[in-house]
């Protein structure tokens, strides 16, 4: 029981983002409406971003911007600042996500124009005929 409580409290970043991740994945695979698939994709990507950015947290640390002491000397102690690398990585991943979203929306507009619908089963029917 203690272990479970420890899991829920000390590792909440992992389980929260994993739950979000599978919600997004389910939306991407199982939904019939293509717009809902895109929404699932965004949730899925955001979950991974949360997973990544949570790695950067460090207890007793502040944002990774170097602080200065009273006599203008930089305070260069690694324990005082959070890990900067995950922030950099998710900044890249966010941009990639936005780019994918833009392309997906453009293709969706085209699908709507060609097939007249964005429901997957109706498109498949339209293709068969």
């Amino acid at each position: 029981m203690d272990e479970l409580f420890h899991y829920i409290i000390a590792k909440y970043n992992y389980w929260a983002s994993l739950v979000l991740l599978f919600i997004g994945l389910y939306g991407m695979i199982a939904k019939n409406n293509l717009m809902k698939k895109i929404i699932g994709m965004v949730i899925f990507q955001t979950a991974i971003l949360l997973f990544f950015v949570s790695i950067g947290a460090k207890r007793g640390a502040s944002v990774p911007i170097i602080k200065f002491t009273a006599d203008k000397q930089p305070l260069l102690e690694a324990t005082a600042y959070a890990n900067p690398l995950p922030h950099v990585l998710i900044l890249t991943a966010i941009v990639v996500g936005v780019a994918t979203l833009g392309v997906a929306l453009a293709i969706l507009q085209k699908i709507q124009r060609v097939h007249g619908t964005i429901e997957e089963d109706e498109i498949l029917e339209d293709q068969r005929s």
Binding site: L21, L25, M28, L34, K37, M41, F44, Q45, I48, F51, F52, I55, A93, T100, V103, A104, I107, L108, K110, I111, V114, H115, I123, Q127
Partner: peptide, 26 residues
């Protein structure tokens, strides 16, 4: 015309693949 729907499917699946890779890297 049909290329759009095929590409959309590819986009969804490709994004799942790339995100799995990213999560593994994480």
């Amino acid at each position: 015309g049909p290329a759009y729907f095929a590409t959309f499917k590819y986009l969804i699946v490709g994004t799942i693949g790339a995100c799995f890779y990213l999560l593994g890297v994480g």
